[in-house]
């Protein structure tokens, strides 16, 4: 399925991530998954949350630069080779990954992958066709 990921600019300073996540906590936003991409001088925090539009609004209000990006979120097996399989399915269909990260949902005990591809709908269709249909419930 396609979900909206929220991406936030993180400046290279102690406490930058703490400030962003504090803002989300105060707005009672639940973070399902999170990854920080960093370069030498800045970072991009990417999150899957229960209320992305609200998260965007509160972060902007707090002065952050943030944006929403459609990403493919899919369940997958929780055993060795699971990520390889979905990555292969996308590769075989000629869909290239921009980035990918994984998380385990506490309720289901299943593993999920968040995949950024150029065209989220095309990527989602490839995975559905390959049998990765199970929806992720926020």
């Amino acid at each position: 399925m396609i979900l909206e990921q929220i991406s936030v600019f993180v400046e290279n300073r102690a406490g930058a991530v703490a400030d962003i996540t504090q803002t989300l906590a105060e707005a009672d936003i639940d973070i399902k998954a999170l990854t920080l991409a960093d370069t030498g001088d800045f970072g991009v925090l990417r999150l899957i949350v229960d209320a992305p539009k609200k998260a965007l609004a509160v972060l902007k209000l707090a002065g952050s630069v943030a944006s929403l990006t459609p990403v493919v979120v899919t369940s997958m097996g929780n055993e060795p080779g699971s990520v390889a399989k979905i990555a292969r399915a996308l590769a075989d269909a000629g869909v290239s990954l921009e980035y990918i990260y994984a998380f385990v949902a506490r309720e289901a005990g299943s593993a999920y992958a968040v995949i950024r591809v150029e065209n989220a709908e095309a990527g989602d269709a490839v995975l559905l066709k390959a049998g990765y249909g199970e929806d992720f419930k926020l």
């Binding site: 600019f9 370069t39 991009v44 950024r116």
Partner: peptide, 10 residues
Amino acid sequence: MTEEMFSDEV
């Protein structure tokens, strides 16, 4: 940093 210059892609 501005909205226009920002992206989820590094």
